[in-house]
């Protein structure tokens, strides 16, 4: 098992989990989001290729109302 930070919260994942699988687990795979993996933006096309490892930091953002 590996521990990562997802939007500032500690989340435990199975080893060899991809970003795509993580999004699926949190039901975010169909939503319009953008992802930063250890401060580097991950293009949508790479979600299935990108594996997560212990202590990774993931930020998943979307659009909300704002002025």
């Amino acid at each position: 098992m590996a521990k990562i930070q997802l939007n500032g919260k500690k989340v435990t994942i199975k080893p060899k989990t991809t970003i795509y699988e993580l999004l699926k687990r949190f039901k975010l795979n169909n939503k319009k989001v953008a992802i930063e993996h250890n401060k580097i933006i991950v293009p949508r096309a790479s979600y299935k290729k990108k594996y997560l490892k212990n202590n990774d930091k993931l930020e998943v953002v979307h659009f909300i109302g704002g002025g």
Partner: peptide, 19 residues
């Protein structure tokens, strides 16, 4: 319209979204 970029609430999946 202007919009802001914020973290997705990962715990509350049913929350409506702007889009």
């Amino acid at each position: 319209v202007t919009i802001a970029v914020r973290r997705v609430n990962i715990l509350d999946k049913k929350k409506p979204i702007l889009t």
